[in-house]
Amino acid sequence: MRNRPVIAVVDDDEDDLFLIQEAFKVCLKEEKVVIASSGMDLLSRLETLPILPSFLLLDLNMPLMSGFEVLATLRADPRYNLMPVLIFSTSNEQPDIDRAYELGANSYVKKPSSFNDYKSVVEDLCNFWLRIASTPSSRIYQ
């Protein structure tokens, strides 16, 4: 049986998670969205997934384990080091942006403030990462 493609999201802010999920509902077809509320939660959820997520949306400012720490952990793990990781943050600080790329983020997406902007961002990132680019997990379902 074919596995449904997966998108993973990790964010400690409940309001942001709600907006992301609602925005995904508008543009996703068959993909399943896996939500995690912390870096540790994400790592344990990844263990249970049958396929690698097509991409991960990763918040930066989280307690206990920051987005940078999650990114470094994923890049050091051969099970997950090929997974595209898109930083999704309100931070516009250039040092944060530069550090994310240095640690191996695949892109750094600016987190919007309104739901309409959320829909626009999520639609564009889905169009690029699910329809224009190929990812290591997409080979499973294409």
């Binding site: 942006i97 997406v109 600016k110 961002v121 564009d124 990132l125």
Partner: peptide, 8 residues
């Protein structure tokens, strides 16, 4: 649209 509008 993705790289110009949304990516830092």
């Amino acid at each position: 649209s993705y790289w110009k509008k949304h990516v830092a």
